[in-house]
Design a protein around this nucleic acid. Structure first.
Lengths: 196, 196
DNA sequence: ACCTGAACACCGTTCAAGT
DNA sequence: ACCTGAACACCGTTCAAGT
């Protein structure tokens, strides 16, 4: 298997360390959440703390790298959901459900995404744009079929759903336990079936 | 003016320190949020760090004390809103708006409330119950007039609104900027005007 | 009973020395 | 160009000594 990132050219040992750090970060973030000790990550990767800082100057840079493949998964989910041809309500349930589930893999990630959405200076900002774009695709698809209420802004919906993901994360709710909240949002953005 | 808390009897100097700590915490939490340095609070209060820990064994105990009057304000807001005799939509807008505004006074407080709501072991849990109760009063009032959709659970609504407050807090949104999200939730829980 | 502040522990961050 | 790890800084927490 090739190295994790195909990005810029690095010395072989640097690339190896980069990969080990990323793998260690994934493990430790999964175990202890996105606030885990960076020192532990360096230890698990078997490198000095300085090496971690060389590759990832801030915690968010490390989180950003960990999120890369993950945000691509979310994006492809949005295409699948649209292609599935479900009705509007089921489309949103599936899409929001997958979103909350995916973002919940790393504890603390939902809060990071939530606050990075409106912060261009955050290293995670661009990754958030992928998520915002994916959500916009789904909502635009439904809007094109006249299924949404007037004035629904996909950005606000994204904020709401990432807020729900954060609630689910911090209150240790399962995906099932977050559906009542998601259903309220869905009712709030879908046009009434009784309308002309 | 009397001392801040009428609770248990304390030695005069202890009570003075308690009050100074609480005043300092309010100031510093307001300036730097609920994650501010506890050492700074002790310094501002002019006491040793050990004294802070004697009165408030954990950060959450301190937050809890700071929140006391504040949660009472929220509770009385709910009564005022009910008494105001507004229509359902305006009732919810006013109530949710006040809630988000109040909880936003201390940065980081919204996230604390959010996660303490489902955690009985949290020192803030009881304070959260006051908020949950206040919200339940407002929703029960509307439900009694048949204005809510069937199956709306006030607990889920509370989770959602505290999630919105957290989004607003962490993304530095003004109260105005959080109304679009609140409106979606309001649409989601109000019965359709067109229903029989 | 309560206060103080030195002391400890933990962890993030830097940087001089080394390859 | 990159790595190492000692060193520093900051802050939460404890506790022996004092009143």
């Amino acid at each position: 298997m090739a190295s994790e990132e195909t990005a810029k050219p690095r010395r072989a040992d640097a690339q190896r360390n980069y990969d080990k750090l990323l793998a260690a970060a994934r493990e430790i973030f999964r175990e202890h959440g996105a606030q885990a000790s960076l020192d532990d990550i360096a230890k698990r990767a078997g490198v000095g703390p300085g090496t971690l800082y060389r590759h990832f100057p801030t915690r968010d840079d490390l989180i950003d790298a960990v999120m890369r493949e993950w945000s691509e998964d979310v994006d492809s989910d949005s295409d699948e959901v649209i292609a599935a041809g479900l009705d509007a309500q089921e489309t949103l349930r599936t899409w929001f459900g997958k979103f909350v589930e995916n973002i919940g893999v790393y504890r603390g990630a939902a809060a990071k995404v939530m606050s990075a959405m409106d912060d261009e200076s955050s290293p995670i900002y661009r990754k958030c744009q992928v998520l915002v774009g994916a959500n916009d695709k789904v909502l635009t698809h439904l809007a094109g079929r006249g299924e949404l209420r007037d004035g629904v802004d996909s950005r606000e919906v994204m904020r709401l759903v990432s807020g729900i993901a954060t609630v689910a994360d911090q209150s240790h709710l399962s995906v099932d336990e977050s559906t009542p909240m998601l259903d309220i949002v869905i009712q709030g953005i879908l046009r009434d079936p009784s309308a002309p």
